[in-house]
């Protein structure tokens, strides 16, 4: 098993995540794409720490923690926006404040 193949997979997952974020018109799908990109970065960190070094794994652990925080707050905001605008299409939401 070669490290390069893991790096290719990581690049592929990162690109797919970027395409999901750009093309899908739904806030929850965008959160899924962000999770995919974070995991691709994690895969890189672990792959480079394969030869006995654990710094990459420790860093990946902190990436997971921050990703969880981001997902929780992101879902709360998406639910709130959905409740107020009754849409989860980010392109349709252009008002920050209630119009009078």
């Amino acid at each position: 098993m070669a490290i390069e193949h893991l790096l290719y997979l990581s690049a592929f997952l990162f690109s797919i995540g970027l395409v999901i974020i750009i093309t899908k018109r739904n806030a929850i799908m965008m959160l899924l794409g962000i999770e995919l990109m974070l995991n691709a970065a994690n895969l890189n960190l672990v792959a480079f720490g394969y030869d006995g070094k654990i710094e990459g794994q420790v860093f990946a652990l902190f990436v997971v923690i921050v990703a969880v925080c981001e997902a929780a707050v992101g879902m709360a905001i998406v639910l709130r926006v959905y409740h107020y605008y009754t849409t989860s299409v980010p392109d349709d939401i252009s008002n920050l404040k209630e119009q009078r």
Binding site: S15, I16, L18, V19, I22, T23, K24, R25, N26, M29, V89, D91
Partner: peptide, 14 residues
């Protein structure tokens, strides 16, 4: 889910 901006998205990703 609808998709939009397909061609720019795929060009960016590729």
């Amino acid at each position: 889910v609808e998709t939009a901006r397909k061609i720019p998205g795929f060009i960016t990703g590729a």
